[in-house]
Every structure is written in structure tokens, then in C-alpha cells.
Amino acid sequence: MMQFRNLQQQYEVLKPQMDRAIQSACAKADFISGHEVKELEQQLAEYVGVKHCITCANGTDALTLALKAWGVGPGDAVFVPDFTFFSSGECPAVVGATPIFVDVDEATFNIDPARLEQAILEIQREGELRPKVVVAVDLFGLPADYEAITKICEKYGLLLLEDGAQGFGGTQNGRRVCSFGDISTTSFFPAKPLGCYGDGGAIFTNNDEWDALTRSYAVHGKSGEDKYNNVRIGLNSRLDTVQAAVLQVKLKAFIDYELEAVNQAARWYDAKLQGKNMRLPVIPEGRTSSWAQYTVQLPEGSDRAALQAKLKEQGIPTMVYYAKPMHLQGAFAGTRSAKADCPVTERLCRTVLSLPMHPYLTEELVSAVAEKLD
């Protein structure tokens, strides 16, 4: 059966380097905060083009740590796209803030800048919450419209938190994902564009104070000088040394050929799906995607479940990201967060379908998928 994201094949290709890296980390028995972690942070910061990288236990913690560094909490409004993974809205709620869900652009799946400004003005008119942060998600690998979003944040005095969990490796006007936010974050969940062999995450910033704060919050709120002097309430959120060693091997492959390979796979899909009764992904001028997913939109009213079942019978896996808008999630029922007008998101949740996508797809495999999509 075809793999949706072929991590087994990736391991087979990288096996010699990967086994050496893991064995080396294990032989040194320096499992927590070993030198591979520090090396990886330097490599990631250099690749992204920012001053600081702070690794942590997962992408969800990365978002939470950024919000804690900014002191975000009760009474604060955090603007989040309605069409995204749950953690983008969960993390503001965890620190006591109120997620305000904003509709997305139908073509790019990313937060709609015009709807964002409308949401900010609405919260200002209501007067009950303080507009504080915008969470911009680089969904499916594509950077959000940072030219427009940054202007809005500057206009209204808001902090910009870039959730680059799906977009690592993408670019906009020559700048890489995870360099656009006042703080940016990513996830190293195995299926992400750059993933490890477990959970992991990272935070990026050019701000020295926020670097120090997130490092403190990530290790039980410890003082920089004395790990047994805890000066704030934090988390236990560190990237293991073995995972850092895995990521060093994967980062090299990602830079050397994987990123170009997924873009080639996307070009094959674009060519072979032309003329099919579906809407293909759009990459605006000046942006590149890291293709965490290749997501099409089926016609409204299509029997998506039947199509998925038919493809599954023929050995072709598919996924639906995401089937329910954020504002309709049960966790937000009865709260201010549930009061969102997001018709584009609701339509996308009914029509999107993600196809197999990874750096080891061949043109023959892409053709096989395309032929079955009637």
C-alpha cells in the first residue's frame, strides 16, 4: 500500500548516518541537554536566519512558552485562524487568554488579513478584552501573508506569533518560515516537513529577553545562574539529545534535497490534476511552500467519504485536515471564542482532501493517485 508520508523509506535512505548519530548520542549517555542539542539550535537559527533558537519538547509547548514569555493571560484576546490544528487555539486558552477565531483565505488556507482587521476592530468595540497577539499559521507548508499581517500588527500594537509547525522550509520574498514572528515556533512531530522520531519543538526570536525567558520557562522557571533557584512557574519542556541527533541528520537531508523533492512532487500533482473537478493548491507570487500537505478542494456537495473509501480500496491513503472549524470545537462551546463568523472555514472543512505527499514520491506514484481521482 502507498504511504501517506513515507517515513520508513526516509529512514532506509538515511539509515547509515542515522544509526551512527543515535548510537553516538547513546554511547555518551548525555541524554538531556547534550551538546547535540546546542549544535542543533545553532544550525536551526542559522538556517532560519534569526539570532536565537530554543528547542523544547513539542510544538504545542513552543506556542505556550512564547505566550508565557509575553505574559499573555486573562483578559487578553489572541487572534487565531479558524482553519488550523487545535493547539493554535488551545495554547492561548491554556494561559487564560481568549482565542478569537478568524476566517481564512479560500485559496491559501491561511488567515485572511482583511477578516483579521475586522476581528480586531470588533474586539476593540466590545471593550471587554485587550487585543494582544496574532497567531499566524503557515498551513500545509505555505507561509501566511506576512506583508499584510505585519502591517496590521504594527497598526494596532499587537505581537505576532508565527506558528510554523507545518511551514518549516517555506519562504516569502526570500525570508524563511520561522523568521516572521516577533516569536516563531515549529514542531518536530515525525510527519512534519522536518520531523524527529518522537515529539519535539523549537522557538525562534531575535529578542534577547524573550530568549532568556523562554529558556527559563522551558525548564521549570529556573534562574539562568542556578537551576535550583526557580524564579517563575514554568514547564518541563526539553528536546532530548537523541532527538537532536536525529534532527541533525534530517536537517541536512532536508536542506540538501528533500525540500526540492517535495516541490517537484507538487509540480507533478499540479500537472496531472489539471482539468480534474477540484481546486488545486495556490502558491502566491513571492512565496514557496514546504508542502506539509498537498490539499485539494472538492466541489461542494461531493461525497468525500465515498471517494476516500474508493481510494483506500485501491491502496491510496488520504486525510482530511480539518473536519471541524476551531470555533465549533467542543472545548470552546459556550465561550466568546465560539462566536465566530467563518463561512470559508466551514466550507473548507466540508471539501478539503489531502493526498499522499513526501520527498520520496515518484512521478509514477503521483500519476497513480491522479488517475484514480475522477
Rank of each mutant, 00 (worst) to 15 (best):
E12C: 06
Q248I: 11
F86C: 06
F101R: 00
Q274R: 09
V231R: 02
L298P: 09
L158A: 04
V282H: 12
K38I: 13
F332Y: 08
S337H: 02
A244H: 00
F31R: 01
E41G: 03
Y294W: 05
P131K: 07
P81N: 11
C153I: 05
T150Q: 13
Y321T: 00
A119C: 07
R267N: 13
Y257T: 12
E36N: 08
R176N: 14
L373S: 11
V177H: 00
Y11S: 15
G34M: 05
E364A: 13
D61F: 14
E364T: 06
S354V: 07
A265W: 08
T55G: 10
E117R: 02
G224W: 11
A212I: 10
L373W: 09
L353I: 07
G170M: 05
P343G: 13
G157M: 09
Y47T: 12
L160G: 07
K324P: 02
L247H: 05
D145G: 02
F31D: 05
F332S: 00
E209K: 01
S302E: 09
T345W: 06
V48E: 07
V296D: 13
G334R: 06
A212Q: 08
T171F: 10
G181K: 00
E12H: 11
V177Y: 01
T98G: 01
G275D: 07
K252E: 15
S354I: 10
D105N: 12
C349S: 08
L158S: 07
G234I: 07
D182G: 09
R232Q: 14
L40C: 10
V249K: 08
L139H: 02
A77H: 11
A107F: 10
D182V: 11
E41S: 05
D138Y: 01
A114V: 14
L239H: 00
N110H: 05
S223T: 10
V177K: 00
V262S: 10
D82A: 15
Q43H: 11
L348N: 08
E126Q: 14
S88N: 12
G198A: 12
Q329K: 06
C153Q: 03
A25R: 01
G73S: 10
A144V: 05
D270T: 09
A370P: 03
A271D: 12
R175V: 04
T84R: 05
P113I: 07
R130Q: 14
